[in-house]
Design a protein around this nucleic acid. Structure first.
Length: 407
RNA sequence: GGAGAGAUUCCCGAGUGGUCAAAGGGGGCAGACUGUAAAUCUGUUGGCUCAGCCUUCGAAGGUUCAAAUCCUUCUCUCUCCA
């Protein structure tokens, strides 16, 4: 009966899994009924976790629910070197202080998904523990196990060499270091993006060599970001961050390319597959408006991270504000002294982060509403009597309520 | 160590003495349209006391009435040779 339970898990994982090395070994691990150690190695360079990262985290959470332990490995040693994955050029090295700062931010974000406050289910390790203590002889010995051609066979290294850009020694060695970490942790399982398969395979290699059971590697699917083309990344600004507010999560989903809704439902929510299938058919047949499908997605997602009430509230807010164009009830309120003020000066008060030139342009393009009236003259003098209240709309998304009173 | 190439406004990338606040694309923002913060179209995208002025083209100097464009030095990046 335990086996049946585990089959359920494998089905659940199938939804977001790209590949398992190997499925048989994974089954055997689950059947062993012991607590498994899950290696969660983090390159803490950019502590901005998005939905893509969360896919792996949710799978680990699922394992925690079954009593297994996530070993969060801060790559404080390896981060100083810089993982060359996906880089066309080497990364700059980083200071220990930067790394610690980023690690703390990282931990805070994964707490949105993982259980981090139970030591039986979550521990923190640092690979400087062993790499800091290793001697040159240790390193050379470990390097001796691996052939250069094997390291060079990695696509990324090959393409860099072919295109004439350089590969530095420490980058070449990176997979060895990351692989050895699995030995030190005695890792049973690791769940990573498919771009990490090569590095984690080195882990299996070293574990076997050291007489350990090789870790199982589950790689996950990489899903395109909001633009529908590239994977989510900070620099492309096409991601939904775990740290985003419920409102931003909802809004960003509504700006997702329509064609991606079904895929996102599959990967980023736990909505039952038959329901997703229905949505897919509805969209294809035209009986379901794309916006409705996106609302379902946005609600499911906000609910997953912030709970059902938040999801319902944000859905209502979005409908009222964008579909019905109502002035949102929770718009930020500002107090203003009674008297005359130039329109442009008023805007500067409302949006102090923008330059006057920017605001002037906004004004001229017709983006400013006072009540229902469109205002476009920067020099216009407005007269606000004591006690009056006004609604100001600045573009599509910014709303302010003005209270005029003597302070 | 030797020989070349290059550093441009958020990003990519034109621009080789005045017509350059600097083409084009991307991204952003805004307007129209829309049951979407989709798609599409249009506009806009250094700052300000805004029909004018000020500050930008790796850094510092210099030539010139005038420089992103020429000269000198420096810093960094890349390519090739050994």
């Amino acid at each position: 009966m335990h086996g049946v339970h585990n089959e359920g898990l494998i089905d659940l994982f199938a939804r977001t899994t790209d590949d398992i090395v190997s499925l048989e070994e994974f089954r055997a691990l689950l059947d062993s009924r012991r607590q498994l150690r899950i290696k969660f190695g983090a390159d803490v360079t950019a502590p901005f976790l998005h939905l893509g990262h969360a896919v792996n985290l949710w799978m680990m959470r699922e394992m925690q629910e079954r009593g297994h332990q996530v070993q969060f490995l801060i790559g404080d040693f390896t981060t100083r070197i810089g993982d060359p994955t996906g880089r066309s050029t080497g990364r700059p090295e980083r200071s220990q202080a930067d790394i610690e700062h980023d690690a703390a931010a990282f931990l805070e974000q994964i707490a949105a998904v993982l259980i981090t406050d139970n030591p039986a289910l979550f521990t923190v390790r640092r690979n400087a523990e062993w790499w800091g203590a290793a001697t040159a002889a240790d390193l050379v010995q470990r390097l001796g196990a691996v052939t250069v051609s094997r390291l060079q066979s990695r696509d990324m290294f090959r393409s860099r060499q072919e295109s004439g850009s350089e590969v530095r020694m420490h980058e070449l060695i990176y997979p060895v270091l990351q692989g050895w970490d699995s030995v030190e942790l005695a890792s049973d399982l690791t769940i990573v993006g498919s771009d990490q398969l090569f590095n984690e395979s080195m882990g299996r290699f070293f574990q076997e060599r050291q007489g350990q059971q090789a870790q199982v590697i589950i790689t996950t699917k990489i899903t395109p970001g909001l633009d529908g083309v590239k994977k989510q990344s900070k620099s492309l600004n096409n991601f939904v961050a775990l740290a985003d507010s419920p409102r931003d999560k909802f809004g960003k989903i509504m700006s997702l390319a329509d064609a991606l809704v079904v895929q996102w439902l599959q990967v980023y929510t736990t909505l039952p597959l038959p329901e997703i299938e229905q949505i897919d058919q509805g969209l294809a047949a035209g009986s379901l408006h794309p916006m409705e499908a996106k609302r379902i997605l946005a609600q499911a997602l906000v609910e997953r991270y912030h709970g059902r009430p938040a999801a319902a509230a944000e859905d209502r807010w979005f409908r009222e504000t964008f579909s019905e164009r109502a002035f949102p009830a929770d718009a930020p309120q500002l107090c203003l002294r009674p008297g005359r003020i130039k329109l442009l000066d008023l805007l500067v008060l409302l949006a102090p982060d923008q330059s006057r030139s920017e605001l002037r342009r906004l004004l001229l393009s017709g983006a400013v509403l006072l009540g229902a009236e469109k205002l476009a003259d920067p020099q216009q003098l407005l007269d606000f009597p004591e006690g009056s209240c006004h609604e100001v709309k600045l573009g599509r998304r910014r709303h302010f309520r003005l209270l005029v009173q003597e302070e």
